[in-house]
Structures are given as C-alpha cells and as structure tokens.
Computed example of a mutant assay.
Amino acid sequence: MKHIIAVIGVLAVTSLFAHLNAQNIVLGPVLTDYYSVKDALVGSDAKAAAEKAGTLVRDIDGVDMHAIPAKDHMAFMSLKDKLAFDARHISESTDLAHQREHFASLSANMASLAKKARLSEQPVYQEYCPMKKSSWLSNDSSIKNPYYGSSMLTCGKVTGTLKP
C-alpha cells in the first residue's frame, strides 16, 4: 500500500512540474505566429503573410507580463518594440519584397529572443540564406527559404539549433 501511495505521489509531482513548465512558456504563441508568417512567405503568399503578421502583432502586444518568468521578461521587453515594428510593417503591406525585408529584421530579433528566453518545448532551428545574407527560425531542420519562396526553396543551411 505504501508503494502505491508513493507511486501516486511521484506521478502527481511529475504532472504538476510538467504543467508548471508548460505554463512558463508564455512567449510560445509569439514563436508560433512567427512560424506562420515564415510559412506564408515560403509560399510567396503576401496576403496570408499580412494576416499572420497581424496576429503576431496582437500576440506581441497581448503578452501577459505578469505571467512571464523574470529572465524571459527582461529579454522580451528589450525586443518587444522591434518585433512589433517589423510585424506591423509586414501586416500593413501586400508587397512581398517589402514584407521579406522586414522579415529579415524580424527574424534577427526573434533569434535574439530565442537565445535569451524560453519560447518552445521543441528545438528551434536557425537557418541561413547566403543569397540574402539573412537568417530565419524554423521548427523543422529542412530548408524552406522564406526570402525566395519557390524560386530558391531549398537555398540555405541550418546554422544552429536552440534547445529548449
């Protein structure tokens, strides 16, 4: 009987820590939205990129600053305005070239955030396009270039993996 109670206790504590761990990823929606913008640019879909960037702006502005861990809070606050600026520019444009220019800056700032704050339970891949001389983040190690879309879809390489 004592063993059963001990096992139940261990399972309860493990479940509690997993739940708390998941709650501490307050910035997860920002990364998910970023990936959606990237995917729209990979597909050269300016309208979808604008819509997804609009969602990203709303989620950046809507981050619950009281729920975010202190380390993540400091990292996010130092980049929040820059992230929102580029996301807003992407959301207000249907010019794919203009969107991709702001995506390069957005990606650089997202990479800075990903290196300082916990954004995901999964690895985040930093990928690089030598033609554009710009990086982007991905949840997949396969190359799908958001700067050139189908014209140079696989141009680039993984330059780093950010572990959770």
Rank of each mutant, 00 (worst) to 15 (best):
64 D>I: 07
133 K>Q: 09
42 V>I: 12
74 M>Q: 14
123 P>S: 11
47 K>V: 13
151 S>K: 05
127 E>G: 01
125 Y>K: 12
34 Y>A: 05
16 L>Y: 11
44 S>T: 10
110 M>R: 02
46 A>E: 04
90 I>K: 04
47 K>M: 09
70 A>R: 13
128 Y>V: 07
7 V>T: 04
108 A>M: 03
78 S>P: 00
157 K>A: 15
70 A>Y: 10
157 K>Y: 03
109 N>D: 15
26 V>P: 06
17 F>G: 01
147 Y>G: 04
25 I>K: 14
47 K>D: 05
77 M>W: 04
10 V>N: 04
153 L>D: 08
57 V>C: 02
56 L>C: 06
31 L>I: 08
101 E>C: 03
33 D>G: 00
107 S>L: 08
9 G>M: 05
112 S>N: 12
41 L>V: 06
136 W>H: 02
83 L>I: 09
163 K>Q: 10
6 A>T: 11
147 Y>R: 09
114 A>Q: 08
135 S>C: 10
100 R>S: 06
143 I>V: 14
135 S>D: 14
40 A>Y: 04
26 V>G: 03
4 I>Y: 13
57 V>E: 00
45 D>W: 10
13 V>N: 06
38 K>F: 03
146 P>C: 07
111 A>L: 13
112 S>Y: 07
1 M>K: 15
36 S>A: 13
67 A>I: 00
22 A>P: 00
87 A>M: 00
57 V>K: 00
48 A>S: 11
147 Y>P: 04
145 N>L: 06
145 N>A: 09
72 D>P: 01
64 D>Q: 07
19 H>Q: 11
85 F>P: 02
81 D>N: 13
62 G>M: 01
13 V>Q: 11
14 T>R: 11
43 G>M: 09
23 Q>A: 10
113 L>S: 02
47 K>L: 06
143 I>R: 00
77 M>C: 04
100 R>N: 05
1 M>D: 14
163 K>E: 12
116 K>I: 08
154 T>M: 15
64 D>S: 13
122 Q>A: 13
150 S>E: 15
13 V>F: 14
12 A>R: 01
80 K>F: 05
102 H>S: 08
67 A>R: 14
84 A>K: 05
51 E>G: 08
9 G>D: 01
135 S>Y: 03
145 N>K: 04
112 S>D: 15
21 N>S: 14
76 F>A: 09
112 S>C: 05
33 D>Y: 09
128 Y>R: 07
69 P>V: 09
155 C>W: 03
17 F>S: 08
89 H>I: 10
1 M>S: 14
106 L>R: 08
